[in-house]
Design a protein around this nucleic acid. Structure first.
Ligand SMILES: [Mn+2]
Ligand SMILES: [Mn+2]
Ligand SMILES: [Zn+2]
Ligand SMILES: [Zn+2]
Lengths: 152, 152
DNA sequence: TCCTAAATAGTAATGATTACCAAGTAGGAA
DNA sequence: TTCCTACTTGGTAATCATTACTATTTAGGA
């Protein structure tokens, strides 16, 4: 779980920006955003839907999909996760980096001062107008190593 | 198009490694790998299939999918491309980096000495056994800027 | 409280990817 | 060369994540 204060800040920002964008803040939207904003492990659609079932027994899967697409378009979340796997979401839109397990799909944030300080390389200006830089480290997580240490 | 010599090297390596791995080098497999290895723009499955239709009129889409998955498992290609879009493939398995257009999905390689020299951050060892590091720059490509410069 | 555009729930449709299987083929043994 | 067998392919069906549709409900302002 994320620090309570970080969550509060995210929710506050969400409410403010959502009103500015003339988006209705429905209970469903707020709840869906809250799950992503409170999570540390980049949850997927089914997972979010399941987690909300207790409080919203009639919440439709389509609403979860629609809402997450909306949140993405508005810049509140980013879609992450390896190709070939289902969509996962990240409410941390500040520059940070990911460790992704090639076996089980686990995604964890990590911080690194040198990476965070990286300037966007000048070469990319030849290709267009760069906006963001992301670093991803691929590997095998501890849990998967424990299960099967040898397999390369 | 890639430099002819680079292509030759890739094909040679492919033939050698494929035999080592006891994989039959069928005309279809070689042709599919050749298209990816010769391309600079990270082609998708349909594109590869279409390009081969002249020489392999009966080549099935499933064979293209199956072969690319095989090539990926064997480490000859990587699956790339933004979430939400179809699979694209990259035969360059050396460390290099991508500029991706958020509007049209264009993916171009770029080199950067500082990025290539990056060591994998030590923090990631807490999470598991890191193997690879990738950098992706997101932005808007020149063609898209020309079409609609203002839209942010 | 009332009104209306916007949002939701439930379900159907879509489309990329994967699975299946009969027929074909590569490559080794005799 | 011929034969054998396991592997591969083509054609097509199935799957499954995601998106579209529509009648009904609701947020939010007058
Ligand atoms: Mn993250
Ligand atoms: Mn590349
Ligand atoms: Zn793992
Ligand atoms: Zn573009």
């Amino acid at each position: 779980m994320i620090a309570k204060q970080v969550l509060e800040e995210r929710l506050e920002l969400f409410l403010r920006k959502a009103r500015e964008a003339n988006i209705r803040v429905t209970p469903q939207r707020l709840a869906i955003y809250r799950v992503v904003a409170a999570s540390e492990d980049h949850p997927g659609v089914e997972e979010i839907h399941k987690k909300l079932h207790r409080n919203f027994p009639t919440l439709s899967l389509d609403t979860v999909y629609r809402t997450l697409r909306l949140l993405e378009d508005l810049g509140f979340v980013n879609a992450v996760g390896p190709r070939r796997e289902t969509l996962r979401y990240d409410a941390n839109t500040k520059r940070h980096h990911h460790f992704t397990c090639l076996r089980c799909g686990l995604i964890r944030d990590f911080e690194d001062a040198r990476l965070s300080a990286l300037k966007i390389p000048a070469q990319t200006r030849v290709l267009g107008q760069p906006q963001d830089l992301r670093v991803e480290v691929l590997g095998v997580c501890n849990a998967c190593l424990k299960k099967n240490p040898k397999k390369k």
